[in-house]
Simulated scan of single mutants.
Amino acid sequence: MKEGLWEQNVVFSQLLAMCPTMAVTTSGTNGLGMGLATTAVLIVSNILVSMIRHTVSSQVRIPVFVVLIATLVTVVDMAMNAWLHDLYKVLGLFIALIVVNCAILGRAEAFAVKSGVAASAVDGLAMGLGFTGALTFIGLIREFLGSGTLFAQASNLLGLSFAFLEMKVPGYGGALLMILPPGGFAILGFLLAGKRVMERRLDERAKQQTGDAAPVAA
């Protein structure tokens, strides 16, 4: 769980799925919707790959995994079109492009094909939650700076039960640049730099604590 959420985060550590990260994070609602759709595909694909890992030979496993992921994405695409049509119209082509998200095939190849069903399901959940958190966080920052809102149209896109998330800053019109691609790249760069600084300080603190404990143990 720690690897999926922080140490091996799909966006902030592995720098995968940059296309949807930049394209759909114009609002927190869009980022949340894309992240949850990808999480569903990650969990189910990891489970299925783990179940068939002893059946599929190594020579053809990549094509089989791709077809499996494409089938799951098609199901998710049709389900969102049926029950979350407004969100489906906003995300558009990027739902189908979940198929080429390197994180999904990467986890199937790096973890699910070598692990049991339960562990693969947890791995898919952790990676999916980390991806969802990254997209939602970037989307919220861009939305707040760009339009002065948080989770705009959440009730229309995700359902009435998400209406409590909608907020607006009174008297602030926003800066359009933050919603445009240059703003997205700038925000992602600052977040990556912040994560690196935080990790460095945590490592230094851990080394310092280890150094202080060594003389005591001696």
Rank of each mutant, 00 (worst) to 15 (best):
V56H: 01
T149M: 06
A110V: 10
L160D: 15
V66C: 05
G124A: 07
G4R: 01
P63V: 06
K89L: 15
A110R: 14
I138P: 00
C19P: 00
A96Y: 12
L145N: 03
D203T: 13
M78L: 15
Q209T: 14
T210I: 14
N81C: 13
I69E: 06
A112C: 05
G128R: 00
A118M: 13
Q208I: 01
L72S: 07
G159Q: 06
G184N: 06
L97H: 05
Q14I: 10
G33W: 09
F12A: 07
T210S: 15
G189I: 11
L145H: 09
W6Q: 05
A70R: 09
T21C: 12
K114C: 11
L93E: 14
N101T: 08
I98L: 11
S161G: 07
N101W: 11
N30S: 14
V99F: 06
G35V: 04
R107Q: 15
N156A: 14
L180F: 00
I69D: 04
R201M: 14
F144I: 05
L140S: 02
L176M: 10
H54T: 04
V56P: 00
E109W: 09
M198H: 15
V49E: 03
I98Q: 10
L158A: 06
G148D: 03
G148Y: 02
L160H: 14
A186P: 00
V11R: 06
G133M: 02
C19E: 15
F131H: 05
G146P: 04
T136P: 02
R142M: 04
Y88L: 06
P215Q: 08
Q14W: 12
D203I: 11
G173H: 04
N46W: 01
G130Q: 03
I62Y: 05
G146F: 02
W83A: 14
I141V: 08
W6V: 09
S45N: 01
N46R: 01
D212K: 15
L68P: 04
M34A: 09
S115D: 12
A23F: 06
V76C: 10
L84R: 10
T74L: 15
G133S: 03
A154D: 01
R205V: 11
I95A: 05
A152D: 08
L125S: 06
M127N: 07
E199I: 12
A121D: 05
L129S: 04
L157S: 07
M127T: 09
I62R: 01
G139C: 02
L150M: 11
M51V: 01
L150Q: 02
M18E: 08
V197C: 10
I95Y: 12
G28Q: 09
I98R: 08
S45D: 06
R205S: 15
G173D: 04
E109G: 06
S120N: 07
E204H: 13
A206M: 12
Q14D: 11
A79Q: 10
S155P: 03
